[in-house]
Amino acid sequence: MKRLGFLVFALFVSYGIVNAAEVIDKPIAVVNGEHILKSEYSKIAEPIIEQYRLVTPKAEFTEEKLKELKIKVLDQMIDDKLILQEANKQKIRAFKKDIEDGVNQIKKRFKTDEEFKSELKKEGLTEEKFTKRIEDQLKQIKLIDSEIKAKVAVPKDESVKALFEDIKSAIDGKELKEKTEEEKKNIDTLSKMIQREYGEKVKAKHILIRSSKDDAMTDQIAAKKKIEEIQAKLKKDAEFEDLAKEYSEDTGSADKGGDLGTFGKGEMVKEFDDVVFAMQLGDISGIIKSEFGYHIVKLEGKEIGRKLTYDSIKAYLADFLRQKDAEKLYSQWLKELRAKAAITTNPIE
């Protein structure tokens, strides 16, 4: 389930000890009498906020969005606390071997035992506390399995077939009628994933000069001039790969001569897709403008798509429907846990 990724992530960022001289620790929430301290919250929230800052366009990184993110992090910590409390209430136990396996799985991420212990020390954890954290998470997972996973029914064939027909309609560009916005969003996401797997694929290289509508006008003009100069060099038979290494501002592909690898429709922005999938093998495009800036693309290869049939994806669609049912059941179960709990929170700074 979605929350399990958060549990694993929390192993090395939660429950660390913060120097009392630096932070005056106080509860940021109280859940059935158990405190969530400000230091615990900071250990979780700070790396998540930093990651969000790195991947979010500046125009979208607002104080309101930041506040929403902070509240979501605290809500997740409250949920974790409630689930562990419920697991203890039901006397759920984690087997010793499972705990040892969990500890060893984390240890394998480190080259040496000394490196592992150093990380524990940096996070203010002893091996005993770390092992207890693994044990608690295993108890939470066992509780979720018994309360949610075991109670979710296998989807009926007609439901799976109906979803398949909706996906085919979405791929064909037909309007989806009598669907909620959430259903439309799920179908759109699934259709794009399936189209990437079964549809036509291309292999391409590109040169990117970054430019945003939020940039100063002088910077936008300079970016356009730069890509035009690169285009002129290509017309004089300069090597595409050499120009990509020298000028491209896509740090993920520049060193590889602009190589983007193989991708399907929907994996790139629409402006990029529309041009690339209409190109012929060996073609070099004109200048393409997208939200990332200016591109020039070279088509390196094409793969014909596979025929999409119901039998080929029915197991995947059934799993998807079962997962959605599990998410609804999980959300309702959490609401019930919260309704029975005594929860108080303090303002998040």
Results as ranks from 00 to 15, higher is better:
L163C: 02
E123K: 03
N88H: 12
V269Y: 07
I17V: 04
A223S: 08
K298I: 02
L84A: 05
K203P: 03
D255G: 14
A254Q: 08
E127A: 10
I221W: 03
T309P: 00
G199L: 05
D273I: 01
A20S: 09
D237P: 09
E349I: 15
E147Y: 03
I144G: 03
N19D: 09
K108Q: 01
A94L: 13
S331W: 13
L11S: 08
G102K: 01
A254T: 07
I36G: 06
A278Y: 02
K67A: 15
E86P: 11
K89M: 08
Y294S: 03
I148R: 03
E349L: 14
E239M: 05
K203M: 00
K328N: 13
E200L: 01
Y52N: 14
T218E: 00
F110T: 06
E123G: 04
K43F: 15
L329D: 01
D255R: 04
D98Y: 13
E119G: 03
L66K: 14
K177S: 12
L176V: 11
K233E: 13
Q76L: 09
I17R: 03
K245T: 10
E291V: 13
S285F: 11
K97C: 13
R338N: 11
G286F: 05
G199R: 02
R210I: 12
R109P: 04
D79A: 11
G257C: 09
K122C: 06
A153F: 00
L176T: 11
A278W: 00
V202K: 01
Y15F: 11
S212D: 04
G16R: 04
K111A: 08
G257W: 06
E128P: 06
G301D: 01
L260P: 02
E115Q: 05
I106H: 02
A222Q: 03
V31D: 06
F95M: 15
A20Y: 09
G266A: 06
K314Y: 01
A223I: 03
K91Q: 15
I44C: 11
L82H: 07
S169P: 01
E183D: 13
T344Y: 10
D101M: 15
P27W: 01
V152Q: 01
A59N: 13
I17G: 00
V160F: 02
I24K: 10
L163A: 06
A20F: 08
K192V: 00
K236A: 07
L317C: 04
T131W: 10
I17E: 02
L281T: 09
K156L: 11
E60P: 12
G199T: 02
L11N: 12
E165R: 07
L334F: 12
I194S: 08
T126K: 04
E197S: 08
T112W: 07
D98W: 13
I36D: 03
R3V: 08
G305N: 05
K328A: 14
L308G: 08
I227W: 00
T126Y: 04
A232M: 05
L74S: 10
E349C: 12
K129G: 07
E181R: 11
D242Q: 05
D79N: 13
G257M: 05
V73N: 07
D98F: 12
L11Q: 12
K174E: 13
K168L: 09
V297P: 00
L66I: 15
D259P: 00
I24R: 11
K65Y: 14
A162H: 11
I304W: 00
L334E: 12
T126M: 03
E63C: 10
A170N: 02
D311Q: 10
E175M: 12
